[in-house]
């Protein structure tokens, strides 16, 4: 992997991890489209991806820093107290715990099998198009008026459903944030609240995915280029922060349909290119 390729992948990761367009899908499709000779399963590439994930997680933590501080304090206080106080931060904290469990467990048991089956350009292109259709379906099912409920009105069962929906993103091409936002919309949350819950829910997942893979950085076969990895991590963090700033404003008055159009178009075009052999899959 050249320096330019690494930096482009870092920008792509920071940008596509939070936009509902599947970062993993793009990490498979872009190198294939540009004929990059990268082994996506090599130890050095996987170690580089770990750094990019850590960068994205840091951006999420930094962006929602005050909120996270309140959530963690309320969570710890509720444990010490041994009962719920009913505060907003405490409810958010427990919604996040309940939502994280299904995605964590399913990811643990099925991630490797699912990715080894589907992480090639043709299935990814199909799933990317399906991801677009899921967003259209979400907007259509919630109806014209849509829900305007705040996050704290979500039930714990509803949070578990959002977590289960998020686990669909184990399929490369399906977006984690996209499925979580759609699930939130179907629970009658507003777009802004569904997006906020998706980003908050994504923080422990992305952080854990990064931290639990840190040993890969010290794998003797990984040969991580230190400068490249550090710059990649910083670039990924900056891009993710800018994406968050944009998306939180965007979802105050806009919906998922533009991302749906993008995913359907990009998925269909990539499928035609790879399936017809115009681009080697």
């Amino acid at each position: 992997m050249t320096f330019a390729q690494a930096m482009l992948l870092a920008i792509l990761q920071g940008f596509s991890e939070l936009f509902p367009i599947s970062s993993l899908g793009h990490t498979v499709l872009i190198p294939a489209l540009l004929h990059w000779n990268i082994d996506l399963a090599s130890p050095s590439f996987l170690a580089f991806v770990v750094v990019l994930h850590l960068g994205t997680a840091l951006a999420l933590l930094a962006f929602y820093w005050r909120e996270w501080r309140g959530i963690v304090v309320a969570f710890l206080e509720s444990i010490v107290r041994g009962r719920f106080s009913g505060s907003t931060d405490e409810k958010t904290a427990w919604l996040l715990v309940v939502g994280t469990v299904p995605v964590g467990l399913l990811g643990l048991f099925f991630e490797h099998q699912v990715r080894s089956l589907f992480a090639s350009p043709i299935p990814v292109a199909i799933f990317l198009a399906i991801n677009g259709l899921v967003m259209f379906a979400g907007e259509w099912l919630r109806g014209k008026d849509g829900g305007q409920r705040p996050l704290v009105s979500l039930s714990y069962f509803g949070a578990a459903k959002v977590g289960l929906a998020e686990a669909l993103a184990l399929l490369p091409g399906i977006s984690r944030s996209g499925t979580a936002i759609v699930a939130g919309l179907l629970m009658n949350l507003s777009e802004a609240e569904a997006a906020r819950f998706s980003f908050l829910l994504g923080t422990p997942v992305i952080l854990a995915a990064g931290v639990l893979e840190v040993p890969r950085l010290f794998d003797s076969t990984a040969h991580v280029e230190l400068v490249q990895a550090i710059l990649g991590g910083i670039l990924s963090a900056v891009t993710a922060y800018i994406s968050l700033a944009f998306l939180t404003r965007y979802f105050r008055s806009n919906d998922l349909r533009p991302f749906g159009w993008y995913c359907v178009a990009a998925g269909t075009i990539c499928f035609v290119l790879f399936f017809s052999g115009m681009v080697k899959a």
Binding site: I79, G82, R83, V97, L108, L212, P215
Partner: peptide, 24 residues
């Protein structure tokens, strides 16, 4: 180790559940 950490996390959540039931 990843599996171990996740199961330890679940164990801690069950202890918190126990704590919530034990608190006066």
């Amino acid at each position: 180790h990843k599996h171990a950490v996740v199961f330890a996390g679940l164990g801690i959540l069950c202890l918190i559940w126990f704590r919530f039931q034990s608190a006066a």
